[in-house]
Computed example of a mutant assay.
Amino acid sequence: MSIRDSAKLFGPAWIALLADADAASILGGLSTGEEYGYKLIWFVMLLSLPIFIIQEASGRLGAIAGKGIGELIREHYSTRISILSIFPIFLVDFFTYLSEYAGIAIGCYLIGVNPLFGLIVFFILHVLVVLTKNYEITEKYLVVISVILLLSALIMVGPKLSFTGQDVFYFSTSKNFLFFIAVNVGAVVTPPCMLVYQSSATAIKYSKIGIDNSKKTSWIGIETLLGAIITELIIVLSEMIGTSIGNIDPIDPAQLLYNLGSVHYIFGITLISAGFLTLIVVSLSSAWGLLE
Rank of each mutant, 00 (worst) to 15 (best):
F267A: 10
I209M: 10
V188F: 11
F90M: 14
R4Y: 14
I204R: 13
A102P: 02
F90Y: 14
I155H: 13
N213V: 04
I15M: 08
L256W: 02
M240K: 02
K208V: 07
I53C: 07
E136M: 14
L290V: 06
I120R: 07
P250W: 02
V183S: 05
W14G: 02
Y170P: 01
S82C: 06
G158C: 08
T96R: 00
V130Q: 10
R60F: 10
G62W: 02
A63M: 11
I245R: 00
D20P: 00
S244T: 13
C108P: 08
T202V: 12
S200R: 00
G28E: 01
V92W: 00
L290A: 10
T96E: 01
L284V: 04
G59E: 07
A287L: 07
A228D: 09
I53D: 14
F10P: 03
S174A: 07
N213I: 09
T173G: 05
H76E: 12
G268R: 00
L131R: 13
Y38P: 01
D5A: 08
Y38T: 04
I269K: 06
G221Q: 09
V183P: 00
Y206M: 06
F94K: 01
G158W: 13
A203T: 04
P250K: 12
A19V: 06
I3Q: 14
E232L: 10
G59M: 06
